[in-house]
Amino acid sequence: MGPLLLTGLRAVATVFVAHAFIYALVGALPRTGIAVLGLSAAQESSLSHFLATTDPPESYLEALARLITMEFGKSLDGVAVSTLMAQSTLTSLPVLGLSLGITATTTMLVLVWPHLLAPRVVRGGFEFLTFLPAFVPAFVILAVMVSLNQTTLATDGWQRTVIASLSVSVMPTSLALTTIRDGFDHEMSMGYTRTLRAMGLSRGRIVANLRKAVVIQIIAIADKIVTLQIAVLIFTEVIFAIPGFGNALLLAAQRTDINALIAFVVVISATVATARLLSTLVLARIDPRQRVSEG
């Protein structure tokens, strides 16, 4: 119970530290430290933006109290930030849900048939995709649509949701598939796999035995997949002009809406910390190595 409690506390502490950082960055830094960098004009400008926010937190303690009560104040428009967050997140849900579905389905397929990743070109392609900037898939899809004279598809309706979901899922899926491939390669090179081979087990039986070890590796990087999914979602929504989470975040940044910016960062941090906590809890149950080390 002890290590799990510590993991939970670590997740909560992560959100609080992220909140402290974003408060320092958008709340405290423009008001205090910027003169040291010789940016007095910027200071004046950002201070005016800061004061334009309807009810900015005056001190860190006030900001902390808001975090604890989950009341983030009002945006520049006078709308409650929590309402803004809920609306934008609801708009993003179809894209996020569909892209998660695509990632999960592809991952399952490759776990069942790992030989799909066997060709060198396929492996290299997925590796390269994980290396690219998060905004490239959306721009590539946009460029393909432009060259096919299909730009109207990306403006409205279910087609836009499908296209955006494909764009969002490309990089997290590539990351998951690369991990599966590396996982199988690693497990295949281990001594116990050689023993299974020497015992005369077929390749299919060996792969079935190794699958759990590879699933454990996928669960271990769940937080990274979620972070990547959020990053690509923000870019994709901005590129395809979907009025969801990404566009709301961009609008808050462009208008220096302090309350909204703090809330967005806290929500992103909490989502990733929750994913990390869940993956740790699942690993604690299914990973025999962790059970042994705890015991």
């Binding site: 423009p30 910027a42 937080d223 923000i234 940044a253 960062v265």
Partner: peptide
């Protein structure tokens, strides 16, 4: 470790656009 966890929980470019927004530069 805690600081790294917090920084890692938000994509790097979000920190940067927040800073660019707040510092107007």
């Amino acid at each position: 470790r805690l600081i790294i966890d917090a920084l890692e929980s938000v994509p790097a470019f979000v920190w940067i656009i927040a800073a660019v927004s707040a510092l107007s530069s």
